[in-house]
Design a protein around this nucleic acid. Structure first.
Lengths: 216, 216
DNA sequence: CGTACTTTTGAATCGCATCAAATCTGGTGG
DNA sequence: CCACCAGATTTGATGCGATTCAAAAGTACG
């Protein structure tokens, strides 16, 4: 029952690449060959705030966050992606409104934006699939907002397991410190909350997994 | 310099209606006549969680929130709309994932979902405009998440004025209590924070407007 | 084996939630 | 027109939970 997770590899320029099924099903056929693979080491940035978007990034291994640096220089995590597009919303945008940061070694598929945009205009089925993807993203973001509106860390953690997890199990992929950032709390407070939740047998922990214990 | 704001009217069944320019520009011509006007009194619900979406709601006057009721029965505001679509993300969804609540007397344009979906498949230009709208929404939601990640109420208020306001001015439309909900804080705390910000001359208040005082 | 980072625990502090209550406001009906 | 009510606004007092600062223990990696 260990989580299936592809590790990231640096394959150099990766001339020919294999698209993951989810991306293959989304993109029209003629786009497939225009895609390129890319590798980013931990803490490398895929793109920077203010820069012009040329590629759409589809994460296939590793993990990428969208971050903005606040007024005091602290970074705020807007989104984390382990499988799927980062910055879908930058399709028709002149500049990025946040940074894309690989928080671990990461493989992505790069899709050229100009061609992507053209294909969306030409191919109604593709446009429809793209809209569905954006709909999903909007809902995910609404849930994220809901989570961040909760006052206690305990509530946020349980909400996370319930909405992002499967069958009451949530896989923590890049460490609790990173998760704390996503939940909008300090890592110390998260550690304490998890310890408390474990002591009251509300959740169990193991192998980076947070599991809800079923209560009668 | 008073804010232009259309008040909501109950025009009965409103057989023939006038679409606002923003909606007219978005929808293809043949959709225009399929739209209907509707009026909701304060605290009426446009739709309920779990119900099947038949109409898309475009708010033209008043204000609508998307809300989910948490485990303890408290309601969490996911989104507020004063002009534009509510629940754009429910286009291809079997059921609503939240409630739509008129928090003041509200006029909306109802657009039939089946026809809307068909038009998106047939009309690439329309699909393109729809995608742009979703992109905007995704970005707005990301900013909302960023705001909710801020620890202090002061930071959230200033972020709100900077991102949702115009020229350092933010119009509070439906009361501070409602705004407090959107910011994820209690109304008491918000009142105190605003009073403090006013005392230090960081902001000014008047006529439901929060204005940033320019500092050298 | 040393370095960097994560995880963990400790103690002090502070901001916000909470509960309470007073004032103000607009709208309703006598 | 005024009494009345519901809701919004405001201020006060108290306690809790999260932040903050600090430091120790664990872990991965070269």
């Amino acid at each position: 029952m260990c989580p299936i997770r592809i590790s990231a590899y640096d394959l150099g320029h990766m001339k020919s690449i294999v698209l993951p099924p989810s991306l293959k099903a989304l993109l029209p056929l003629q786009m497939h060959e225009l895609c390129q693979g890319a590798f980013y080491k931990k803490n490398e940035r895929l793109f920077l705030t203010g820069k012009k978007p040329d590629w759409m990034f589809y994460v296939i291994a590793g993990e990428v966050t969208l971050e903005r640096t606040g007024l005091q220089g602290e970074s705020v995590v807007l989104q984390r992606t382990r499988l799927g597009f980062v910055s879908e919303a930058s399709l028709k945008t002149a500049k990025y409104h946040c940074d894309g940061l690989a928080i671990t070694d990461t493989n992505v598929i790069k899709v050229p934006i100009t061609e992507l945009s053209g294909a969306l205009d030409r191919d109604p089925d593709f446009a429809s699939r793209w809209i569905s993807m954006l709909n999903t993203e909007v809902k995910r973001l609404r849930l994220h907002c809901e989570r961040l509106s909760m006052k206690s860390i305990k509530d946020r953690v349980l909400h996370l397991i319930n909405t992002e997890g499967k069958n009451g199990e949530y896989q923590v992929n890049t460490g609790l410190k990173s998760l704390a950032g996503e939940l909008g709390v300090t890592h110390e407070a998260l550690y304490r909350t998890l310890a408390a939740l474990e002591k009251t047998r509300t959740i169990r922990r193991g192998e980076g997994m947070l599991t809800l214990t079923d209560k009668p």
